[in-house]
Design a protein around this nucleic acid. Structure first.
Length: 575
RNA sequence: GCGCCAGUGGCUCAACGGAUAGAGCAUCGGACUUCUAAUCCGACGGUUGCAGGUUCGAUUCCUGCCUGGCGCACCA
């Protein structure tokens, strides 16, 4: 049982017996609702229950607090109990409670802080990035890549069953325009006088693709029929862009269970139906589809949208929205109960109609759209849009190459997703105190260094060579039954106290889709460690104390590594 | 005009409705003969955009206003 629950039970029991004993006149038993005071001088945990029921009980809150404290059952958790301020009940826990946390960490290792699946959540589809395959990913996509990945990691650790998906918009006229753009560049490179039509893709990468085709096939496509050439080039360019995105994201540490093609939504199966026809039929059956002005409409206003939306245009073409209708329907068909989409804030106008379609299928609330604010790039405080090298929009790939994966991820995650990010490339590249990612990683590396120092030389060397994990090394050095009773220094207790909040933090970060909180936790834990490092020595203390501190150190290492891992950031063993 | 997001020290950000609003950076002053100084300690710095309301208690919730970003297609 979590410490919070145990304390709540204690206080709740006290309340109950005070009421039953006639000392408190309350119609119903209020909840203890323990919280962690920001200032540890107010104890490790506090209850505000006395404040909240003062009015009903018609008593002074401090008086109520005293009654509750008097009724607190005997226990070995609380070492000190204080009534403070207006009527706060502040509890200080016995060191043994915190020592138990350290033991729990070393026992559970990578599973420390792992949660149970929240009620009502069974199978979550998390869709993110979903960049168009008509060009390279830009910096904003990097934010979604980071956020989605961290969200998936955090939610999994909190017990959710998460399936990560990338939606490829490979259907529709934009793809033909892409193919045409490549074809024009191809002809131009071969000396033909062809103008690039308006609305074309004009980026340098289009020319590169065309050059690639020339390198492979020469001028054989010049004589091909225009339509055929466009279609062929479209497919070549598409597959190149897709490989590009896959490689960039894989290098960034992302993994998608599924790369879902929009085209597949239009392909009929053996029974002659496709997701498009099935989703439309389902809506029609429920009475939310109608024809007007030659077009086919979804009655999204029935669910709060500001206007109805077209699914099939007057000219018979399907809208982009139709694809999304089919796509979400397909997700439901594939068995997902909860659909989470991460979108840029510039798409927020699109949310209502998508929520409406889920409601039309009697699955209101099944769709959750996480909107993220955009990324502004800076270099030494100056706004940058264009890359110096290409003269075009800075791509995500360029950003990672210049800044590095860890610093990019950490910075992208260090703000709540509904805050815009001002990403300064030069600031992100700095390897000093102003860059928090190194502060956290350094704490981890420092611990590893101490562990290596007390280890046999060959084992220490093996961890540096990568042939032995730190976990394995720690297991050699640290006895399972190490006595932790000597860990009573303030900085030792602070470390364990910080770690004791980890599982609750993971649960909250998952619930609120806010992995950025892990960055604050990691910095907090790293800071607490650095303090410990300066006040407490490990090596050279008496055998019992050294053993206990090594144990604590390794617990800290595990939690630091886990926090970084949940953010998708590496935990280096030396720096 | 309507809608979404946000406004907290010079800068970047925190704070389940709780206590004296916390960190980091920057600035200034200290600490390496000791397990990594990518570290630590200290100082300076605030009318939480404005005005009301709810509450024992509001940065947090409600209303109005101001400022900034984004969006309001038979485009994708």
């Amino acid at each position: 049982m979590e410490i919070r629950e145990q304390l709540e039970n204690l206080v709740n029991d006290a309340l109950k017996s005070a009421i039953e004993g006639g000392k408190l006149a309350l119609a119903e038993v209020p909840q203890a609702a323990m919280e962690r005071p920001r200032d540890t001088s107010n104890g490790d945990w506090a209850s505000t229950v006395a404040l909240r029921c003062a009015k009903q009980a018609k008593m002074n809150p401090r008086q109520i607090a005293q009654i509750i404290v008097d009724e607190l059952p005997e226990n070995d958790l609380v070492s000190q109990c204080e009534i403070a301020g207006a009527g706060f009940i502040n509890l200080t826990l016995a060191p043994a409670v915190f020592q138990g946390v350290a033991r729990c960490v070393r026992t559970e290792k990578d599973n420390f802080g792992k949660g149970e699946i929240p009620a009502g959540e069974s199978y979550v589809n998390l869709e993110y990035v979903s960049a168009n395959p008509t060009g390279p990913m830009h910096v904003g996509h990097g934010r979604w890549a980071t956020l989605g990945d961290a969200m998936a990691r955090v939610m999994r650790h909190a017990g959710y069953n998460v399936y990560e998906e990338f939606y490829i918009n490979d259907h529709g006229t934009q793809m033909d325009i892409f193919g045409t753009s490549v074809a024009v560049r191809y002809l131009q490179l071969l000396g033909h006088d062809v103008a690039l039509p308006e609305n074309s893709y004009g980026g340098g990468y289009v020319k590169d693709i065309a050059q690639g085709i020339i390198d492979r096939d020469g001028d054989t496509w010049v004589s091909a029929p225009e339509e055929e050439r466009m279609a062929a080039f479209r497919e070549i360019a598409y597959s190149e862009m897709l490989q590009n995105m896959e490689a960039t994201l894989a290098g960034f540490g992302n993994h998608f269970e599924c790369w879902f093609s929009e085209r597949s939504l239009y392909v009929a199966g053996p029974d002659g139906t496709s997701p498009v026809t099935r989703s439309l039929a389902s809506m029609r059956e429920k009475g939310f589809i109608y024809e007007e002005d030659g077009a086919t409409w979804f009655k999204s206003t029935a669910f709060g949208d500001e206007k109805d939306r077209v699914c099939i245009k007057e000219n018979g073409e399907y809208t982009y929205f139709m694809s999304d209708v089919a796509y979400h329907y397909d997700k439901l068909e594939r068995g997902f109960d909860h659909l989470i989409n991460i979108w840029g804030a510039d798409h927020h106008g699109y949310v209502k109609r998508c929520e409406a379609m889920l409601a039309a299928w009697d699955r209101p609330g099944a769709l959750e759209v996480v909107l993220g604010q955009l990324v502004n790039l800076y270099r030494d405080g100056e706004a940058v849009r264009m890359s110096k090298r290409t003269g075009e929009m800075v791509t995500f790939k360029e950003l990672i190459e210049e800044v590095g994966v860890d610093a990019t991820r950490y910075l992208m995650l260090s703000r709540s997703s509904d805050q815009p990010i001002d990403f300064d490339i030069e600031a992100a590249k700095k390897k000093d105190a102003s860059n928090p990612v190194y502060y956290v990683q350094y704490a981890h590396a420092r611990i590893c260094s101490i562990l290596r120092k007390v280890a046999p030389a060959d084992a220490a060397a093996a961890t540096l060579a990568g042939t032995m994990t730190m976990d394995a090394l720690a297991d050699q050095l640290i006895a399972v039954d190490t006595d932790l009773a000597r860990l009573t220094e303030p900085s030792e207790l602070a470390l364990m106290r910080t770690m004791s909040g980890f599982s609750e933090l993971v649960a909250a970060a998952a619930r609120d889709r806010a992995p950025f909180r892990l960055t604050h936790f990691a910095q907090d834990l790293a800071g607490t460690f650095h303090q410990f490092y300066t006040t407490c020595h490990v090596i050279g203390e008496d055998a019992e104390l050294q053993a206990a501190r090594l144990y604590l150190l390794d617990a800290t290492r595990i939690v630091l590594a886990k926090s970084l891992n949940l953010l998708g950031v590496s935990a280096p063993t030396e720096m």
